[in-house]
Write a protein that binds this DNA or RNA. Structure first.
Length: 706
RNA sequence: GGGCCCGUAGCUCAGCGGUUAGAGCAGGGGACUCAUAAUCCCUUGGUCGUGUGUUCGAUUCACACCGGGCCUACCA
């Protein structure tokens, strides 16, 4: 039992970026944070769950432009979608704001002044490539060209994947903008920087000794950043940019990563205003210490921002430092990175359309142990575990015993259960400690062990025999069932942070609302029991198949392709589209892959299909699926093409064969070299085999298909 | 190219310097029939990725290698 005064906790999840929908990877974070907050509230602590949409940056600007609408319109729509997804998964924020709001602008200004006052801001020229056609400055990965060192073509602006050289985009030979394909020009622009090095001493101390960071994170920071001078942080972007204009630097905007974490503050401020609370009481450390704990839950990809820049900003501004930065790993599905072609890139909405969200909450909880390891959602495992644990063990306990109490209610005093209830009650503090430490897997294990004991008890006492034995056994039957139902209720208390809806429904059948963790300490006696209702339906393989099928449908053209298997939320507004192999399981080719949207003859003629002769074909030893082909388009024109047909064709059998290639496909840098086209082949979604297309005899290399 | 994480039973994971390495699920056998083909009991199964080193002692620590996953921001 906790005798101490209630704790005050301000808890955040990373702000989801307004450029994409919530997917199962994001939910690892939001679900685990929500469980933490619900747990704290159940324990009687004062906990506030704060989040917001992250709305600024180049990606939003470009997308709004391409969709012909305002940024505000875009982010408002996305916020609505995010909130609806979170609601569906019972993620209950105390406040969900937006970084594009007046409060955030005001607080950005205040923090900015603090940074100035601390003498941390410097101004410096930066040479950067500018795309005159698109009218924007180009981040390195938006520039491609020839490597100045090894002459490899089609390299990104910062480094060469062929020879490993690193350079500035301005050094590239024949640089091109990937936005417009136009020729970028070098422009010099002034940027503002935060001199993080001036905070080095503070960061050494805070990261290594505050206790806010797990050892692996602290070690990582010590080994990779704190061992040398910290680099200045470029915090401004020249117009055009979607964000807040810097008051004392007109024409320039705060970089999205400056205003995003300040969104935690702004969202708290708006929550405080709406609930008669004081912002200062939560973020301004008082002399005697307010006792507030700030907890940030983040994915490991954004560790850098939350453990160096953010604490430095808070420190400079005289604000409360985080008590804990909880870093988690990424989600894989069926052991692999989420993939659209495999149907495992699953949006929150798609899951909600087909499968019980609380089952996913439970499954995640059963696998989250507070470390930074990746978490695997094996869908077969998911079905087995959700059904076995939740339906078979927990709900079954009520399902098999409540019926005998509808008439009589619970026994007037709690019967002798051989110490079962007391044992599970005693374990309450251990389970609580596991929840508090973020080791949800351990908490779930302990809960399931208690459920096992309860089921064994029912088996041993055989209430069904007592039911048949008539009036003489009625009292014992009532006692046995009362024990089972109390053990069930106790489990519901422990499980309530993970499965709030289930707990609520169960509470409606017997005992009333679960209000406190300590409800698990005292058995219910003498109260009424309503007829049992099936509290949870089993998850079926068909539901999972439906999710995969729905996730496999091609996304609308306006949809960007978030390239993350994580809850990554920001910082990479500039994701490229992922290149994914097409190998998905499902029946009948036409059913599995419906016809694409209608296109015009003009669309078709944009694709230049040519007959080609394979000159050579060789294995790429390190590649799982690729063969390296050299094909002739007639005359001296040859192309090197990496084709994903390894395992389906023997290289030797391909030589001299006529095939069809897409001759005007943009060259694609692949791990093993540059691919200058694509060999056309037939394959079915879910069907085995890749079948090359060959022309009739008489066709010549270079002939066009029309 | 750089970096991080992980490799323990068929699967998902726990253990992390010290007696015969654990759990759940799956598999095998039995029991029960109240329950959403749920539950209970028994049971098969592992040279703890490989190699060196440190140590009285290594699954546990260090290094290397192999394999897998992930990140890579104008900043790693």
């Amino acid at each position: 039992m906790h005798e101490t005064a209630p704790r005050r906790l301000l808890v955040t999840s990373a702000l989801p970026y307004a450029n994409g929908h919530i997917h199962l990877g994001h939910l690892v974070e939001y679900i685990q944070t929500d469980i933490f907050v619900r747990f704290q509230k159940l324990r009687g602590n004062k906990a506030v769950y704060i989040c917001a949409d992250d709305t600024h940056g180049t990606a939003i600007m470009l997308r709004a432009k391409s969709e012909g609408r305002s940024e505000q319109d875009l982010i408002a729509e996305m916020q609505q979608a995010h909130r609806s997804d979170f609601d569906g998964f019972h993620v209950a924020f105390d406040h969900y704001g937006s970084t594009d709001c007046p409060t955030n602008r005001r607080l950005c200004g205040e923090i900015w002044q603090s940074l100035h006052a601390a003498g941390l801001i410097v101004r410096r020229d930066v040479q950067q490539l500018f795309d005159p056609t698109a009218g924007v400055f180009l981040a390195d990965r938006f520039v491609k060209g020839t490597c100045p060192r090894c002459q490899a073509a089609d390299q990104y602006g910062d480094s060469c994947e062929a020879c490993g050289a690193t350079y500035s985009p301005a050094d590239l030979i024949d640089p091109r903008s990937t936005l417009s394909d136009g020729l970028p020009e070098v422009r010099s622009a002034e940027h503002l920087f935060v001199e993080l090095e001036k905070m080095h001493g503070f960061l050494d101390e805070w990261t290594q000794r505050s206790g806010a960071l797990a050892a692996p994170i602290a070690n990582y920071l010590a080994g990779h950043f704190l061992g040398e001078a910290l680099r200045d942080w470029d915090i401004s972007r020249p117009a055009p940019y979607f964000g807040f204009e810097i008051p004392d630097f007109p024409g320039h905007y705060w970089y999205v990563w400056f205003d995003a974490p300040i969104g935690y503050l702004a969202s708290t401020a708006d929550w405080a205003d709406a609930h008669g609370e004081s912002f200062d009481a939560w973020w301004k450390p008082s002399a005697e210490g307010t006792g507030v704990e700030i907890h940030h839950f983040i994915g490991k990809d954004i560790t850098y921002f939350h453990t160096l820049f953010w604490p430095a900003m808070l420190q400079a501004a005289g604000l409360q430092l985080p008590a804990g930065v909880h870093v988690h790993g990424f989600l894989t599905v069926n052991g692999q990175k989420m993939s659209k072609s495999r149907g495992t890139f699953i949006l929150a909405r798609t899951w909600l359309d087909h499968v019980d969200p609380e089952m996913l909450r439970y499954f995640y909880a059963s696998k989250i142990s507070g470390g930074i390891d990746d978490l695997d959602l094996d869908l077969n495992d998911f079905v087995a575990k959700a059904n076995a644990d939740i339906v078979g063990k927990i709900v079954n306990l009520a399902s098999r015993t409540m019926r005998w109490l509808v008439e009589s209610g619970l026994s007037a005093s709690y019967p002798d259960d051989g110490g079962l209830f007391a044992r599970a009650a005693a374990e309450g503090e251990d389970i609580a400690a596991a929840y508090d430490a973020g080791d949800l897997a351990r908490a779930m294990r302990m809960i399931m062990q208690a459920a096992d004991r309860a089921n064994a008890f029912v088996d041993e006492r055989q209430p069904w025999k007592l039911a048949k034995a008539g009036p003489d056994a009625a009292a014992e039957l009532q006692d046995v069932a009362s024990i089972a139902v109390n053990l069930f209720r106790q489990l519901m208390v422990y499980l309530a942070p993970v499965m709030p809806a289930l707990a609520e429904e169960a509470a409606a059948l017997v005992g009333g609302p679960i209000l406190a963790w300590n409800d698990a300490q005292t058995p219910l006696v003498g109260c009424a029991v309503k007829p049992f209702q099936p509290l949870k339906a089993r998850v079926t393989p068909e539901q999972i198949a439906a999710v995969l099928a729905a996730s496999q449908q091609s996304t609308p053209a306006s949809e960007t392709s978030p390239n993350q298997a994580s809850s990554k939320t920001k910082g990479s507004p500039m994701d490229d589209t992922v290149e994914t192999p097409a190998d998905a399981p499902s029946p009948s080719p036409l059913d599995a892959e419906p016809l694409a949207a209608e296109c015009t003859i003009d669309d078709f003629t944009k694709v230049d299909l040519r007959v080609a002769r394979v000159l050579s074909a060789e294995e790429v030893p390190e590649a799982r699926k690729l063969l390296k082909l050299t094909v002739s388009l007639g005359g001296d024109t040859t192309r090197t093409i990496f084709a994903g047909i390894k395992g389906h064709h023997e290289p030797a059998s391909l030589v001299d064969r006529l095939v069809v290639v897409v001759a005007n496909l943009a060259p694609r840098k692949m791990k093993f070299g540059l691919s200058e086209g694509m060999v056309v082949a037939a394959s079915g979604e879910g069907a085995e085999g890749v079948f090359l297309i060959s022309p009739d005899t008489g066709a010549l290399p270079g002939m066009r298909l029309r």
